[in-house]
């Protein structure tokens, strides 16, 4: 499997926040979910990848090329979509596209027209006339039409209704089947349960996990117990939280046998919530 992106020891220091030696890599054709609570460092990391931020340390290499030396070449092969952005709100999509396409060597007009049809986009509309979901679809259409090999998506499903989120996750799966690599930041972990191959989990500016989703899920179990249960105060319990029936906590899979508490498989959200509580 080819490595698309290699991030090594990425550091960005702000007053009160440090992105602390973040390292990970992306494999071709895989969907990687980038999770963490708000302010954990997801957007800082993604913006550093695009040179929107100037890192204080570390190295970012796309397809083996350093972003600082090959920025234009690399950006020809990247599509960036962010839920929070709305460009040129009063300009028609037709005009924005006409300008955008002129920058890309591999612009595929037929593909763009096909995206418009599939995403039901009207080029005569302006961004301010589009819902959040449609704006994201338009940005995706632009990214796909220049044949981006890597899609960097910053919270693309944030603020969308469940049906639109489902539509988008289906699109991501299809793109992955076509060989596109997707890095997808979100705090809505249920979207990743359905789509992600790999997981990056960041908390407090530090990357806590970088592995396959299956491996990540398999490494924890969820214990549900009451205060009267034996082992209720065990130090092996991670991120103890109150629940309606008593308490829940994570247990490392290898430690589960050491406790007498009932456990079950945890989903991504439960793992994240408990790890955040522990942090």
């Amino acid at each position: 499997m080819n490595t698309i992106l290699d991030v090594t020891d990425l550091v960005k220091v702000y007053p009160g926040f440090t992105l602390d030696h973040v390292s990970f890599s992306l494999e071709e054709g895989k969907i990687t979910g980038f999770i963490g609570r708000n302010g954990a460092g997801k957007t800082t990391t993604l913006h550093s990848l695009l040179s929107l931020l100037t890192p204080d340390g570390g190295e970012i290499r796309f397809w083996g090329m350093d972003i600082r030396e090959h920025e234009q070449e690399i950006k020809q092969r990247i599509g960036f979509v962010s839920a929070g952005m709305s460009f040129y709100t009063k300009q028609k999509l037709r005009k924005i596209t006409a300008i955008t396409r002129s920058f890309y060597d591999n612009w595929d007009g037929a593909k763009y027209q096909s995206c418009l049809k599939v995403f039901s986009l009207d080029e005569n509309k302006t961004p301010e006339m589009l819902s959040n979901g449609m704006k994201i679809k338009y940005m995706l259409a632009l990214a796909l039409s220049h044949n981006a090999d890597l899609l960097i998506l910053d919270e693309p499903t944030s603020g969308l209704d469940p049906v639109s989120r489902e539509e988008l996750t289906e699109i991501f799966l299809q793109l992955s089947e076509e060989g596109k690599t997707i890095l997808f930041s979100t705090h809505i972990t249920s979207d990743l349960d359905k789509t992600a191959d790999n997981i990056l989990y960041i908390a407090g500016g530090k990357l806590r996990a970088a592995c396959s989703l299956k491996e990540f899920i398999a490494s924890y179990l969820l214990a549900e117990y009451t205060k009267d249960d034996a082992d209720a105060a065990s130090p092996l319990l991670i991120g103890v939280r109150r629940s309606k029936e008593g308490f829940t906590a994570l247990v490392r899979t290898e430690d589960a046998g050491k406790l007498s508490l009932p456990t079950r498989t945890a989903n991504l959200e439960e793992i994240m919530v408990h790890l955040e509580k522990e942090a």
């Binding site: 929107l52 070449e73 950006k75 020809q76 952005m85 040129y88 920058f103 890309y104």
Partner: peptide
């Protein structure tokens, strides 16, 4: 932000 996502240098 839009311009920086295009294949150009800062």
């Amino acid at each position: 932000m839009f311009t920086m996502t295009l294949p150009i240098g800062k």
